[in-house]
């Protein structure tokens, strides 16, 4: 199944990059530098979406005591961290020519950086606890506490007077950009989404295998005694 999502992600990437680089016009204010948004915005969206899904699975694991949901949460964290890193990195490379600074302590940027620390903290906490069931519970609580940061990131550009520009795309008003720019961005967002599903599926399979192997080894040794 992962192969199917990889295939979809590849096709969408080719299409999205084609639209982004060859169809979408030059921005009248930002010149060609705006072409960074074709990866920046999808990565930023995915960084938040993956966090929500990760917390959802972590919560299910905590409440229902289901191991598989905790393993799903575990599998999503590295990809979420990766998306957050890409969003921050590409943001810096856009900020430098546009604002004249790689980094500013703006509400949007700072809350996105906190998101990266939340992902890293989640993974570090998991790694530091040997018993996987305890690691599931502790990391789930961390994930759930950190969820307050997601609406802060999303609404930061409305709540505070941020240097980061407001949303160009939202559910409530028509997008403030050329159709081809929007198409490129949405296709790339879909590509990033499919990629995230593909890698998470593969990673959760590795995690299940490793944890099951561990369990099998435990039952073997108890059988000997």
């Amino acid at each position: 199944m992962a192969v199917f999502f990889f295939l979809l992600a590849s096709i969408l990437t080719v299409w999205g990059l084609y639209v982004g680089f060859f169809v979408a016009p030059t921005d009248f204010q930002q010149g060609e530098s705006y072409r960074i948004i074709f990866i920046h915005v999808p990565a930023a969206w995915m960084s938040m979406l993956i966090y929500l899904i990760m917390s959802f699975w972590a919560a299910i694991g905590l409440i229902m005591n289901t191991r598989l949901s905790s393993m799903m949460a575990h599998a999503l964290a590295p990809t979420g961290a990766l998306m957050t890193f890409i969003a921050l990195w590409t943001g810096a490379f856009w900020g430098r020519p546009t604002w004249g600074a790689w980094w500013v302590w703006d509400a949007r940027l700072t809350s996105e950086l906190i998101l990266l620390f939340l992902y890293i903290g989640y993974m570090a906490l998991r790694a530091s606890i040997e018993d996987p069931r305890r690691a599931d519970r502790a990391s789930a609580i961390l994930a759930l506490v950190g969820i307050v940061n997601v609406p802060i990131i999303y609404f930061s550009v409305q709540w505070w007077n941020t240097l980061h520009q407001g949303a160009s795309v939202s559910l409530t008003k028509s997008p403030s950009m050329a159709t081809s720019m929007l198409t490129g961005m949405l296709v790339m967002a879909l590509a990033f989404w499919m990629y995230s599903i593909a890698v998470s599926l593969i990673r959760v399979r590795r995690i299940i295998r490793d944890r099951e192997a561990n369990a099998a080894w435990l039952s073997d040794s108890s059988g000997v005694q």
Partner: peptide, 19 residues
């Protein structure tokens, strides 16, 4: 990239490397 080559490719190359 209209003078923005470093920034545009610096973004895309690092993102690709991450993946």
């Amino acid at each position: 990239m209209g003078g923005y080559g470093l920034y545009v490719w610096g973004s895309y190359i690092v993102a690709a490397l991450c993946i």
